[in-house]
């Protein structure tokens, strides 16, 4: 920065002399003045930007953090079973868990349901637990839709989305989160999956020996 002032002022010395500046300051003085001005601007900017909320800038957009991150421990949540029992995620500690947040109101979720069932038929016997949490549905509609699709995995209910949202704020339907038996998030899929893709994604949380007998990779 100092250089640019210096070079700049130097370039104009001749022109300024033409205009009869009485005592052209020395280069060093100019450089010091330039540095002083820069420092002044930067200090003033600190106050201006601070008043405009500098400390909040940078947390949104690509830096938004909503869901737990891959590699983190999956936080607990509560939902209700079709029988009306309260179910905690922590109840399944020690098992690989596949969370599917869906809604019967959501066309991609409906389109995906038979594929999820097909994947579960293959993965269930290997010890995988699938919890399909219906968000924002009338409970009867969610249960009926699951029955129509011959679902054999657990359906959980969160009709007004208030139970899961503190730890799992979901903005995408469907959202798939794969948690290994140690409770660590291994994979997050924010898209509809085919049965094959679901099986492939679940490999990341299945115990080694079963994974190797049934690998698709």
């Amino acid at each position: 920065m100092a250089e640019s002032i210096d070079a700049h002022s130097g370039g104009h010395v001749a022109a300024d002399n033409e205009h009869g500046d009485h005592s052209p300051p020395t280069r060093r003085k100019q450089a010091l003045a330039g540095l002083g001005v820069a420092a002044g601007i930067l200090i003033l900017a600190w106050f201006v930007a601070g008043r405009a909320g500098l400390s909040d800038v940078g947390k949104g957009g690509i830096n938004t953090s909503l869901l737990p991150k891959v590699g983190d421990e999956a936080p607990d949540f509560v939902a209700v079973s079709p029988m009306g029992d309260v179910v905690h995620l922590s109840d399944f500690k020690g098992q690989p868990v596949w969370l599917n947040f869906w809604g019967a109101w959501c066309p991609p979720c409906r389109a995906e349901m038979p594929d999820i069932q097909a994947a579960y038929e293959q993965l269930g016997p290997q010890g995988l637990t699938l919890l399909a949490i219906s968000l924002g549905d009338k409970p009867s509609e969610a249960i009926n839709f699951a029955e129509l699709n011959g679902v054999t995995f657990d359906i959980l209910l969160d009709p007004d989305r208030s139970l899961t949202s503190p730890t799992y704020p979901i903005y995408n339907f469907p959202t798939h989160i794969f948690i290994d038996e140690n409770g660590i998030v291994q994979k997050i899929v924010l898209a509809e999956m085919s049965a094959d893709q679901a099986i492939e994604a679940a490999q990341s949380i299945l115990p080694e020996q079963t994974a190797s007998t049934n690998t698709r990779q």
């Binding site: 938004t64 909503l66 869901l67 991609p108 903005y171 995408n172 997050i188 899929v189 924010l190 898209a191 509809e192 999956m193 085919s194």
Partner: peptide
């Protein structure tokens, strides 16, 4: 074969 729309956690399209 398949259509797939993937999204980001804040709900924007990826």
């Amino acid at each position: 074969d398949q259509f797939s729309d993937s999204w980001r956690e804040d709900g924007t399209a990826a």
